[in-house]
Amino acid sequence: MTYTIPDEPTPSTLAKLAVRPMWPLFALMFVNTGVSWLWFIANSFFQGSPYLKKEVAWIALGLAGSCLGVFAIATALSQGFIDESMIPYLLIILTVWKLGISYKIFVLQNNSFELFEYFQESVSNGAIPFIAMVIIFQQISLYQLLPSYIYLVLR
C-alpha cells in the first residue's frame, strides 16, 4: 500500500474522460452556466479530485445566488421598483456572479488537475466535447424549452 497525501487525486475508472478545467470554464462563456457547472462536477468526479465536495458546495452557492438574483429582479419589476430598461444592467450583475463562482471552481479544480496530470500519463482533449456542446446548444432554443425563471438562472 502506498502512502497517500490528502490533496492527491484518487482517479475513478472514468479518469480518461477528465479534461483540463479551462474547457468547462469556456462552456460557461460560449454555451451556458448549467452545462458548465455540470461539466465541472463531472470533471471533478472523473479526476477523483479531493475538492469535489467543496466544488459542489460552491456550485450550490452559485445556484442559490442566481435564484435569489432572478427572484429579486422579478419581484422588483412586478412591484414597479424598476422598469424594463434596467433589466439588462441587473442581468450583468447576475452574469458577473456566475462568472465569479465559476472562476473560483476553476482555480480549485486547476490545483488538483496539476497533480492529476502528474499521475496520469495522458489527458483527454476537451475541445471535441466543447465544440459539440456549442453546436448542439446553438440548435436548441433554451428560452422556448425552459420556463423563463429557470432559463435566467441557467443561461
Binding site: 452574469t95 458577473v96 462568472l99 465569479g100 473560483k104
Partner: peptide, 25 residues
C-alpha cells in the same frame, strides 16, 4: 492572493459589460 485576484478580474469584466450596455443604450 486568490480572492483579490478573482475580484479584480470580475470587476474588469463587470465594467466592460456595463460600459458596453451603457454605450449601446
Amino acid at each position: 492572493g486568490e480572492a483579490k485576484q478573482i475580484l479584480i478580474l470580475i470587476s474588469l469584466y463587470f465594467f466592460y459589460r456595463l460600459g458596453d450596455q451603457l454605450f449601446s443604450d
